[in-house]
Design a protein around this nucleic acid. Structure first.
Lengths: 238, 238
DNA sequence: ACATGTGAAAAAATTCACAGCA
DNA sequence: TGCTGTGAATTTTTTCACATGT
């Protein structure tokens, strides 16, 4: 019996353009598919801004460097969203992907660590537009307490649990020094957070019921130096 | 004929602890291997800090959530670094991975866009420790021109090509608004940059000879909301 | 004895290619 | 005609399990 959730509210009988009730089965969706879904969403929003009401799998894929088959296969993990002979309706697919990713509802986020990076995250406009609301910031510098940045109040880390619960935050972004990361993460878990984005360049341990994504800025650069070193080497060989 | 590069300088005849000359063949190394390599490196540096001179594949893997076989297989894409019955010598493996990633030499980096995120990147200490040197910053705000931040001078974007060439920078980090990203990237390519980390939430187009990695902060959060939504759904089902 | 390195097997992800539908 | 959706084929990646080396 596959796992499934209700998907896309049933359209009214008179609304001939809306698709029938669909199901999403989550069994064995490759991790890479989910990250491409984010890219599809971003590109579709771009396409909408360009006034394109529909898009074909080949077109969407080409803009992102994927094949048409990849785009179609990725989407069909979650349902049937396309129209044979036409393509996909941009607005409809945006809504569908937002529902799949879970960002058709607002997520309340706390940021821990208001150094340079934490401040950048606080001020980042891209979160709000994708359904993320930053509800509180936490830091252990006494000088910052009680002040506001970008309209968000800064609390002492000692009040983390209280603040997370008061705001009913479900996600945490950790931008503290590496040595403090595990401790902060433990507190977030204790406070009942559902998921964590960790910007500290260190491995953190979490219980299975809390999701994490690690973003290591040096590591991102290393992916590139490897590619460049490889290319130079190939060139020398040839 | 496989691609290969010289690897690990040949030890002196008297140095019985150093390994023989090795070769790296780059043919068909999975992309995921390279990102794990970054994690191995980070964890090994951590282990060294804890005073561990050697580490077994199972131990390294466990700390990162991988299997022992995965660790060994990943490393053998590039050579033989282990000692049967012992494991890997931490310091030696650190050097080897740095060489593989290309970070055993210094890379000069420019940052374009000195908003909140650009400032955070400028101040990030994790770059220098991994072999990245930020040599210049660029922005188009006249008020910032000529000032210094974190000891790095801010130049107008109009001088991008000149600045990149004067500093012989090979990598660029792009932290400008989405609408400006492609233009900035084009200028970086024109200036002869080798690789780009793009923080703007937009797809950029590059010639094949320039590497890129995209970091989309909202997308990172979406990976988590998907996992959380999925877990909640599984719970409801059960 | 113990841990690596590695072919072989298995699993997973991608690509193909075409049936079916607008 | 032109596109999606999708089983099948292919390719890639991971895991297994054991021969090899210390």
């Amino acid at each position: 019996m596959p796992l499934a959730i209700d998907f896309l509210q049933t359209g009214s009988m008179a609304d001939s353009t809306s698709k029938d009730r669909q199901e999403i089965t989550f069994s064995s969706v490759p991790k890479a598919v989910v990250s491409r879904l984010s890219l599809y969403l971003r590109e579709l929003q771009q396409l909408l801004g360009e006034g394109k009401q529909t898009v074909r799998s080949g077109e969407l894929g080409k803009r992102l460097g994927f094949t048409d088959a990849q785009v179609r296969k990725d989407l069909t993990y979650f349902g049937q969203f396309g129209y044979p002979g036409i393509g996909y309706r941009s607005e409809e697919l945006v809504q569908a992907i937002r529902h799949i990713l879970g960002t058709d509802i607002e997520w309340r986020v706390v940021i821990v660590g208001i150094g340079n990076l934490g401040k950048a995250l606080l001020g980042y406009k891209g979160f709000a537009s994708q359904g993320f609301q930053i509800v509180a910031a936490l830091d252990n510098d006494p000088k910052k307490m009680g002040t506001k940045l970008e309209g968000v109040k800064i609390h002492p880390i000692t009040e983390l649990k209280k603040v997370v619960r008061q705001h009913r935050a479900r996600l945490g972004m950790v931008a503290v020094p590496a040595v403090a990361a595990q401790d902060v993460v433990d507190q977030l878990v204790d406070a009942g957070i559902d998921g964590i984005v960790n910007f500290a360049p260190v491995t953190i341990n979490l219980p299975n019921h809390v999701s994490q994504v690690g973003v290591d800025l040096a590591s991102e650069l290393e992916q590139i130096t490897f590619a460049v070193a490889k290319r130079l080497q190939m060139h020398n060989e040839a």
